[in-house]
Simulated assay, not measured.
Amino acid sequence: MSVPRTFASPEEADFFARVEQIADEELAPRAATGEESASYPAGLVRMLGALGVFRLPFPECRGGAGRSYEFYVQVVERLAAGWLAVAESAHVHVLACHAVSTFASDEVRDALLARMLGGELLGATCMSEPDAGSDLTSVRTRAERQNGQYLVTGTKSWVTHGGFADIYSVYCRTGGPGPGGISCLLVDAGTPGLLPGPPERKMGVRALPTAEVRFDGVRVSDTRMLGRRNRGMLVAASTFDHGRLGISACAVGIAQAALDHACRYARDSPPSDASGFSSQGISFLLADMAAQVAAARALLLSVARMKDQGLAFSAEAAKCKLFTTNVAMRVTTDAVQVLGDTGYRCDQPVERLLREAKLLQIIEGTNQIQRIAIARSL
């Protein structure tokens, strides 16, 4: 289904057309087999780096493309419609780039950011822990300062790119309990004592590696701290806000893909078939799905414009993540319903999209966490 879009320049329109081509010709045909084999599509992610996707939302003075976040989230959305694992990998990496671009020292930024934006180095963020989950203030991973270094000890869970990343942004405790004792350190993958576990066996998005990562006395220079000591929650808050928009874009993308598959199936059904457009039960279901996808996209672009204008958007990002991921869950569920027993087969894309939608209600802060953030803002 054609989605009406507007762009700020012919260059943006051309870039988006190239993204659409990659999503349709490179990502979508590989998604089913890639998910079945749980193979990380590193080559495709590097291709996006070479294309310039990672540079899009960063200012030109930092080596970025200087594009709006409104444009960037549309690119992520379109990639997700092709293969969520690739789009989410790009999104997670851009979040790691954001932390370096915004909070690293000039020396560290100059050494790393250009290589990260070009896709030469892959980033990962280590927030969750086995006993902490979405509550970053409860982390137990400890970083003790010793002679200009930090000695990091602890375990992080659900680390996207775990075992594949080149650089890890690690949230650890450098002070007392609570939010005031958290700092964020950049740790190179080859540092002795950094021990990734095997990839988790997941319900969906299996091609994107997620693993536990242990830090067994890892030594990190104090120059590798992002932001100030014991002020890591400021880094995390900024990351969360941007992360919610990226996940929202992924949600809109897979919802659109599910809608497209359902419409195609209904259109190609025989006129006498109850699963075709001639059935009011099906056509009304598709109409509701289309309205929900359009509303989710409109909210996403509205919040992205707020971010572009320099307005506070934290609460709006939480609303966006809550709404768009719930829409993705409803739309993918309804897409399976449109296809009936055919939609329940593993060789149908809508079955995979349904499993992927569930993940988006959990990561970057569960939707229950989003409700807490929204309620506090009221």
Rank of each mutant, 00 (worst) to 15 (best):
G197M: 01
P198E: 12
P198F: 06
P199W: 06
E200T: 12
K202I: 08
K202L: 15
M203A: 15
M203N: 15
G204F: 13
G204S: 15
L208G: 11
L208T: 13
P209H: 07
E212F: 03
V213H: 11
R214F: 05
F215P: 08
D216I: 00
V218L: 01
V218W: 03
V220C: 08
D222I: 05
D222Y: 05
R224E: 10
R224H: 14
R224M: 13
M225H: 07
M225S: 06
R228K: 13
R229I: 05
R231S: 11
G232A: 07
V235C: 09
A236F: 03
A236Y: 05
D241R: 14
G246D: 04
I247M: 03
S248V: 00
V252N: 05
V252I: 01
A257G: 09
A257M: 00
A258E: 04
L259N: 07
D260F: 00
H261E: 15
Y265E: 10
A266W: 01
A266C: 06
A266F: 03
S269T: 10
S269M: 11
P270R: 06
P270T: 04
S272P: 09
A274F: 11
S275N: 09
S278Y: 06
G281V: 02
I282M: 06
S283V: 01
F284R: 13
L285K: 12
L286S: 05
L286F: 03
M289Y: 04
A290F: 00
A290R: 09
V293T: 11
A294I: 00
A294G: 10
A296Q: 01
A298W: 00
R305M: 01
M306S: 09
G310W: 01
G310Y: 02
A312Q: 12
A312I: 03
A312P: 06
A312D: 14
F313R: 09
K319Q: 14
K319P: 07
K319G: 10
L322F: 15
T325Y: 09
T325N: 13
V327F: 03
R330I: 00
T332Y: 10
D334P: 07
D334H: 13
A335H: 02
V336C: 10
L339N: 11
G340I: 00
D341C: 08
D341F: 09
T342F: 04
